[in-house]
Amino acid sequence: MEKEISLSVRNLYKSFGKHQVIEDLSFDLHAGEILGFLGPNGAGKSTTIKLIMGFLTLDYGEITICGKNHRTEYEEAMQNIGGIVENPEMYHYLSGRLNLEMYRRLHPGVDKSRIDEVIELLHMQNRADQKVKHYSLGMKQRMCIAQALLPKPRVLILDEPTNGLDPSGIRELRNLLVKLAHEDGIAVLVSSHQLAEIQKMCDRVIIIDRGKLIDNQPINQMIKQPEQSLTLFRFLDAEQMNKALELFNENSIYKPSIIDQNTLILALEEKQISEIIFRLSQAHIALTAVQPHQTNLEELYLSITGGGNPIE
């Protein structure tokens, strides 16, 4: 059964002067789903998030949050959303708790006790009453996440949420987001350059480049093992590998990818692996390791985006 669409972005256009930053961008975010939002620098990720969060005005297109039109029912739509945009910023001359209190006042129906809940959730009990100007970047990030979670939003949008967090903080955040999405049914959009984290937490990934959507698929589908799995061969030295390359060249069905001077990868079916090892031993080529090679999001991302573009 198709899950409810919490955030719908349709045919978004945005330009700054003559520079078209977002062009015909459309995607959906479903309830209970964590969506990774990827793209190189300048691709338009932050602009898209700012458009959704109301920082920028749309040139064209439509954003719907929990069925409420962003343009015509702004306050109702924004009632369902929480998030952080770019750097974590709060009123530095106020305490973290007072910042949260001021934010709470703007959300009717959110009880004061909720402030303590989110502070506890982000492990900020001991620092909540200190002024924000005394916080580290990580603490500010935690407090901003606490603020985003405060009104119990149905859509959570996080721009670089792991910035400044220590490894345990990153893991806690990951677990928290997974719990919020999968147990509480919150739709989460995460924009990050920490691709390993995205891979670990996201259910689906969209990749944009130059303001256009270039990929949108579930993460498990994106990085699933093909029929021909990749196998890594490590030779004793460069000379041994060159001999192996000559051997593979004789048989054009093998197309090796060179990783470094004594390592290469071949896409092989399982039965072909023993055959290759046999032939290499026959040719007295010394191998030090043969192992399966797992494709990760980073490689896919780099292969899709071409390793990044010059920023325009």
């Binding site: 702004y74 306050e75 009632q79 929480g82 952080i84 709060m90 530095h92 703007l106």
Partner: peptide, 15 residues
């Protein structure tokens, strides 16, 4: 300039 306005803009109130 300090970015503290973000908390207001994200809130469900018109500008």
């Amino acid at each position: 300039s300090t970015g503290s306005i973000k908390g207001l803009i994200i809130a469900p109130v018109k500008r």
